[in-house]
Structure formats: C-alpha cells, structure tokens
Design a binder for these strands. Structure first.
Lengths: 125, 125
DNA sequence: CGGCATCCCGCTCGATACTG
DNA sequence: CAGTATCGAGCGGGATGCCG
C-alpha cells in the first residue's frame, strides 16, 4: 500500500505524549500559525499575509495537521468565491499558555544563546 | 578533514528568537536529553542507557548542539579510560520550567489530541 | 479563493566501522 | 569509554502547475 496511498496516513499516537506535541509544533510553521490565529479567526490568504513567507503548500499542509490534531477548526462557506476560515479550538487556545511561556523564555534568553554560540565558536578556534 | 567544510557550520542567529529555541528542542532527542540531565550530571554512556534507544551518533551530535547553545556543559577528565560528564548550565536549568509546562500540557491533553485524530479520520471516511 | 498533485533537492538521521 | 568518519535511505519542504 505504499505506492499511492490515499493521501496522507494519520499516525494516531506516539509512544511518548510529548512527542505528539513536538511533532506538531516542532516543525517550521505550526507555532507561527497558532500565534497568527491567537487574536482571532482568519481566512487562508489572510493567514498567508500574516505569516509572510510561507508557501500555500506548507500553509495548507500545516493547517490540515493542526486541524487533524484538534488545534484549529476549518470552516468552509460554500460561496463563490469560496471562503474558508480558521479558528483556534479550545484545545488550541489552551495550548497558547505553555506556548507563550516558551516564547517568553526564548525572547528572554536568545541573547544568551547567541552569546554561547559565539563563545563556543571562539573556543574551537 | 574534508576540504568541503570545516566540520559543522554554526548558525549564529535565526531571524526569530523562538526559531532558535525550536530548532534546538524541536528535534527527536534534545528534550529527552535535557530531561535525563535534569536530576543531575551524567556520563555519556549513562545518558545512553537513560534514554534507551538513541544511537551514539545522535547522542554525540545532539549533545554537541546543546553545548554549543549553552544548555549543557561538557567536562572531560583526562583519565584512562576517559570520563566525560554532562551537566545542565544555568541556562539549561532555566529552560526546564517552560519545558515542564509543555510536558505537563502534553500529558494533560494528549488524550484529546488522539481523540481529535480519530474523529478526523472518521470524518474523512 | 483555497487548495491538491507532482517534481526534486538538501538535509537529517540511522547503521556501521574505526580511533584515542 | 567516548567519541568521529563515512555512506546511504528517507523525508521535509520549496517551486510549479492544475482544479473546483
């Protein structure tokens, strides 16, 4: 069943809970999307503009993953032209808290990290 | 030494601070290593046993990255046989807090995530 | 407008083997 | 004991093009 599987396969559960989470937010874009959606609902293209340098491809894929895992809701309005809105679910919103802790930590310490890299580089001569 | 590149290149800084952090902990092993070191200092092989299914290769690489970014300290005791100990730096320890928030969130909500995946799968029929 | 399909490149990571 | 060297498969992710 390799060959052309029916689209993408859904891995239901990782051995370790934290892996479930890291696999979702560890990638390039998920965190940015969640941050963009924090203030409120956005449409697909609005999301693109908000994030800036993401491709349609990756935005689409990542949103689908986030939807799969219950972080966001996708609502299709059958109009012409079609309109699709993305919103954080309660799960998604509940995730904002630990996430913002992480972001805050990153903001507070990235100078230290950069300094460590410089020092390491120097020590390697 | 390959003439190609002098070992591994150090990227000093990402455009966004949170990327610096995610690039470090988003991978397969970094979080596990930090958790393993949380209780205290460990030697290389002890770390391997603690984590379980990591290869020497990846442990070595990941530790080097963590050292580079100032999360852990590497101490070599010039004995025979050689002994190397890894310890969290203050930066590394300070990171445990937001990290544990994240782990706690993952533990609390991974059931919801799995349920969301099941439901999504069903909805796709 | 909001996607999915296809192609393709680069990098990550695993396996294995060798070293001080 | 604590690594590095080398090779190779796999996958993430960019570019492009087509579709409802």
């Amino acid at each position: 069943m390799t060959a052309i599987t029916a689209s993408e396969e859904i891995v239901l559960e990782q051995p370790c809970p934290i892996r479930d989470v890291l696999d979702r937010i560890g990638d390039q874009w998920s965190l940015l999307i969640l941050e963009a959606l924090a203030p409120g609902t956005l449409r697909f293209n609005a999301l693109m503009r908000e994030i800036g340098d993401i491709s349609k491809q990756m935005l689409s894929r990542t949103l689908k993953q986030l939807e799969q895992d219950g972080f966001v809701t996708r609502t299709l309005y059958p109009e012409v032209p079609p309109r699709v809105e993305y919103t954080l679910t309660p799960l998604g919103r509940s995730f904002l808290e630990p996430m913002q802790q992480l972001v805050a930590w990153a903001d507070a310490h990235h100078r230290t990290i950069v300094a460590a890299r410089l020092q390491y580089q120097a020590s390697q001569t």
